[in-house]
Amino acid sequence: MSMHAPARDDALDSFLDKWRGRWPEWNVAQVFVPASQRETALAWASLQQELTDAAWGGSDARPGEAKLAWWMEELQGWTRGIRRHPLGASLQRLPAPWGRLAAAIPPLQAGRERPRDADDALAAVAPFAEAVVAVEAALFDGPETGLAVVQATVLHGHLLIAGEAAVPLSLLAKAGEGAPARAWGAELLRRWPAGSGASRPRRLWSALARQRLRRGDPALPLPPLAALMAAWRGVRG
Results as ranks from 00 to 15, higher is better:
Leu42Arg: 01
Lys18Ser: 09
Asp10Ile: 09
Trp23Thr: 11
Gln30Asp: 07
Ala61Thr: 05
Ser36Pro: 00
Asp9Ile: 07
Gln49Thr: 13
Pro34Asp: 11
Ala41Gln: 08
Pro24Arg: 09
Arg22Pro: 00
Gln37Thr: 06
Lys18Asp: 10
Gly21Trp: 12
Asp53Phe: 10
Leu51Tyr: 11
Glu25Thr: 14
Ser59Gly: 15
Ala41Arg: 05
Trp44Gln: 11
Leu12Asn: 05
Trp19Cys: 05
Glu39Met: 07
Thr40Lys: 01
Arg38Val: 03
Asp60Ser: 15
Gln30Asn: 04
Leu16Asp: 00
Asn27Leu: 08
Pro34Tyr: 02
Trp56Ser: 04
Thr52Arg: 13
Leu42Ser: 06
Lys18Arg: 11
Ser59Lys: 13
Leu47Cys: 11
Pro24Met: 14
Ala45Pro: 03
Gly21Glu: 05
Arg62Phe: 08
Pro24His: 03
Glu25Tyr: 06
Ser14Asp: 12
Gln37Arg: 06
Ser46Tyr: 02
Gly21Val: 01
Asp53Ser: 09
Asp17Glu: 11
Gly57Met: 01
Asp10Ala: 03
Gly58Val: 14
Asp60Ala: 15
Ala43Cys: 10
Gly21His: 04
Ala54Cys: 13
Arg38Phe: 03
Asp53Leu: 15
Ala55Gly: 03
Thr40Ile: 07
Trp26Glu: 02
Lys18Gln: 07
Leu51Met: 13
Asp10Ser: 08
Gly57His: 02
Ser36Asn: 08
Leu42Gly: 01
Gln30Ile: 00
Gln30Glu: 13
Ala11Arg: 12
Ala35Ile: 01
Val33Ser: 04
Arg22Asp: 12
Trp23Gln: 08
Asp17Phe: 01
Ala54Val: 14
Asp9Trp: 00
Arg22Trp: 06
Ser36Ala: 12
Asp13Ser: 07
Pro24Tyr: 14
Asp17Val: 01
Trp23Arg: 03
Lys18Asn: 08
Arg22Met: 13
Ala35Leu: 14
Thr40Pro: 02
Gly21Ala: 07
Leu51Trp: 11
Gly58Met: 11
Trp19Ile: 03
Trp44Ala: 13
Ala55Pro: 04
Ser46Glu: 01
Ala61Leu: 08
Ala29Phe: 11
Gly21Ser: 11
Lys18Trp: 08
Ala29Thr: 12
Thr52Trp: 02
Asp53Tyr: 02
Gln49Ala: 12
Phe15Gln: 02
Phe32Cys: 12
Asn27Ile: 00
Leu42Lys: 00
Ala55Cys: 13
Ser59His: 14
Ala35Gly: 07
Glu25Met: 12
Ala29Glu: 07
Arg22Val: 05
Asp53Val: 14
Ala43Gly: 02
Ala45Val: 00
Ala43Lys: 09
Ala61Glu: 13
Ala45Cys: 10
Arg38Glu: 00
Trp23Glu: 06
Thr52Tyr: 01
